[in-house]
Amino acid sequence: MADTTIIQATNTRKTLRIAVGVLFFMAGLCFSSWASRIATVQQNLGLTDAALGAVLFSLPVGLMLSLPFSGWAITKVGSKKVLLGAILVYGICLISLGLAQTTLQLIVGLVCFGFSSNAVNISVNTQAVVAERMYERPIMASFHGLWSLAGFAGAGIGTIMIANHINPFHHFIIVLAILALGVTIASRYLYDDVGAPKIDSAVKIKLLERLRLMLPLLTLGSIAFCSMICEGAMFDWSVIYFKKVVDAPIALQGAGFTAFMLTMAGGRFVADLFAARFGLKRTLQVSGSLTVTGLLTAVIFPHLYTAMAGFMLVGVGVSSVVPMVYSAAGKSKTMSAGVALAAVSTIGFIGFLIGPPVIGFIAGLATLRASFVFIAIMGMSVVVLSTRAKL
């Protein structure tokens, strides 16, 4: 009887891990599909770099609008239902971006895209925390590795679509079909957390004490914020950088993004082992240093192969930061894992969405190469914050 219980528990955690992994992959595929076609959309609508930067601010607007809704919805109906609904809306919003014929239509589509993406981000990471607890060892990085692997796949598909002159709308319809299939398969195996224990609302904490308890989470959130500025900028601007600065041939304009996604995905599959051996602080310090080195390489030597090598270093650098920070937040002893994770992931994801439009503004005021120096400064901030933090 005991053996049967163990087998059932093992099967439950395996199926949950697979289901959560599938949805991480689908979310990454959805976002990277948009990222791979930004240059095409920019050209179709005749947007300058500065104008594109302004339009991309619609994504963090959608994120901010989604914050109160996502928290309330997860509390009321659970992360499973929020995740399944939000990820399908995510795919539908992707199609709306491919249909946009005017700047206003693109802005509205991006607001909705940002809204649904944040709901997906919080709910899927909440499911990942549950899976990690079942395994009683770090596995968060592997989930983010699947998200990155999907980004690599999305970049590759996008490169093929661009080379064959397939418009974004038809490209995104294919992605939605894949997304719907993945959600259908994974939906029955997710953890239903409706009615799960919540924070005891009867416990009253003074304001100063509450702020003190939040400081470690704010530090983790700040590290995630800086790293995800780098990550978001690479998603939205790497193709444009290779087009305008590196002057790569049309068929290779997505090569830098593909190289970045490849090393980021690979790095996340070994991040748990590296952190277990060298510790969280050392992992974050090395990650930030690699990000800075890669970005400066691409800026100082803006040629095809050197820029690709630089982008590969950036991919390795950012690969471990977010999963390590999320895992640390999930182990918070001052508040529930879900609340801590939502706080840290939200701060980080704001950086992910704010970074690209800021790059556009800097590029409009100076040059695109100068804007990549700003990203390098954010990578250095990861090193500084992790060195001074008590991790």
Rank of each mutant, 00 (worst) to 15 (best):
G182P: 05
I166V: 15
A248K: 02
V183H: 02
K243E: 14
T258D: 01
G254Q: 10
I229N: 01
D193T: 09
H170T: 12
H165W: 06
G156I: 08
K243T: 15
F225Q: 00
A180E: 02
M234W: 07
K243A: 14
L176E: 11
I174C: 13
P249D: 02
A141K: 02
A153N: 00
A251I: 14
D193R: 08
Y191D: 10
F235D: 14
V183M: 05
M140C: 05
L262R: 05
K244E: 14
W147T: 14
A150T: 08
R188D: 05
A248N: 05
R188A: 14
I240L: 05
I229W: 00
C226Y: 00
W237L: 09
F152K: 03
D193V: 11
M228R: 01
A202N: 11
L149M: 13
F260W: 03
S227R: 02
S201E: 13
S148R: 01
F260C: 09
W147C: 09
F172E: 03
I250L: 12
K206H: 12
P197E: 13
A255L: 15
A255G: 02
I173P: 00
I173E: 10
L213T: 10
L146I: 02
I162W: 00
V246M: 05
D236V: 12
L179V: 13
K206A: 14
Y189E: 10
I223F: 02
S238M: 09
P168L: 09
L190E: 03
V203I: 15
S142P: 01
E209Q: 13
L208V: 14
G232P: 05
F225T: 00
D200L: 03
L213W: 06
F172G: 02
G145L: 07
G182A: 04
G221T: 03
I174S: 13
F257V: 08
A150R: 05
L215T: 14
A186W: 04
M140N: 06
I162N: 09
G256A: 09
F260R: 07
G151A: 05
F143T: 00
L208F: 10
G145C: 08
W237N: 04
A155W: 00
Y241K: 09
A180D: 03
D200M: 07
G254E: 01
H144K: 03
V183G: 01
G256Q: 01
H144D: 08
L218C: 12
V239Q: 09
V183K: 01
K204P: 02
A150V: 10
P249H: 02
S227Y: 06
L149G: 10
S227N: 12
S187E: 03
F152C: 14
I173A: 03
I223Y: 03
A233Q: 00
W237V: 08
K198Y: 06
